[in-house]
């Protein structure tokens, strides 16, 4: 579904991604782990061109999305993204947050958009917050709404950029639960996270990144129980120790 070939990204002098070759299959849940500064988020943000790659190809169902001829907005419609800082639109109600893009981009009628929104809000258990404004919500609620907002565009892939890192510990669970359900429903997902429990339980494949490269990748139990590479061992040892 997504094929990444020799992806490089430079921020001025800083070489953040040093040649990444990856493939994400339909329905697969890929979890990206690694120390901070390893390029995980940059890699994820390249997938919908929030960062413009310096070099390489990103093929989405065969089309190179980096090619300027292809409409990036059309591509982004198919790719939902969830951010660490939620980034809900604070000047709109929850309902408007969720219905805005289906109405404006897909020209969906008000009634239909509302229907879609309430179905999603029901699924995450927040239909009663439809008329609230984002800053009346807790962090966990905000992030669940952000997921619903992305899903309202019926994306084919969901990208998660450290979705639980800005949450209070007691709210991490409710967000991970929504993500787990999503994965079970067969959504293709790429998740950058520090939640090793989630990676183990939900991930089909785990990528370990360090210094701009994918050092090691495998099914979760192998990565966590039998890491091959010294740096993976070191990292897994540290994070699992913290548990």
């Amino acid at each position: 579904m997504i094929k990444v070939e020799n992806l490089h990204k430079n921020f001025k002098e800083l070489h953040v991604l040093k040649g990444i070759d990856e493939e994400v299959k339909k329905g697969e849940v890929v979890v990206v782990i690694g120390p901070s500064g390893s390029g995980k988020s940059t890699f994820l943000r390249c997938l919908n061109l929030l960062e413009e790659p310096t070099n390489g190809k990103i093929l989405y169902n065969g089309t190179n999305i980096i090619d300027k001829k292809n409409d990036i907005n059309k591509h982004r419609e198919k790719m939902g993204m969830v951010f660490q800082q939620f980034n809900l639109f604070p000047h709109m109600t929850v309902l408007d947050n969720v219905t805005l893009s289906p109405k404006k981009i897909k020209n969906m009628k008000e009634k239909e958009a509302k229907g879609v929104a309430f179905e999603l809000l029901n699924r995450i258990g927040l239909a009663n917050k439809a008329e609230s404004y984002p800053n009346q919500l807790s962090g966990g609620q905000k992030q669940r709404i952000a997921i619903a907002r992305a899903l309202a565009m019926s994306p084919e892939v969901m990208l998660f950029d450290e979705p639980t890192s800005a949450l209070d510990p007691e709210m991490v669970g409710e967000v991970l639960d929504v993500m787990k359900k999503l994965a079970m429903d067969g959504m293709t997902m790429v998740v950058v996270t520090h939640e090793m429990g989630f990676a183990k339980e939900v991930g089909d494949r785990v990528l370990f990144m360090d210094e701009g490269k994918v050092i090691e990748e495998d099914i979760p139990c192998n990565i966590f129980k039998r890491p091959q590479h010294a740096r993976t061992k070191d990292f897994i040892g540290k994070v699992l120790h913290a548990y």
Binding site: L50, N73, F89, S101, A146, A150, M153
Partner: peptide, 8 residues
């Protein structure tokens, strides 16, 4: 970024 990521 959030707006653009939705396809706007």
């Amino acid at each position: 970024e959030a707006a653009r990521s939705l396809g706007m």
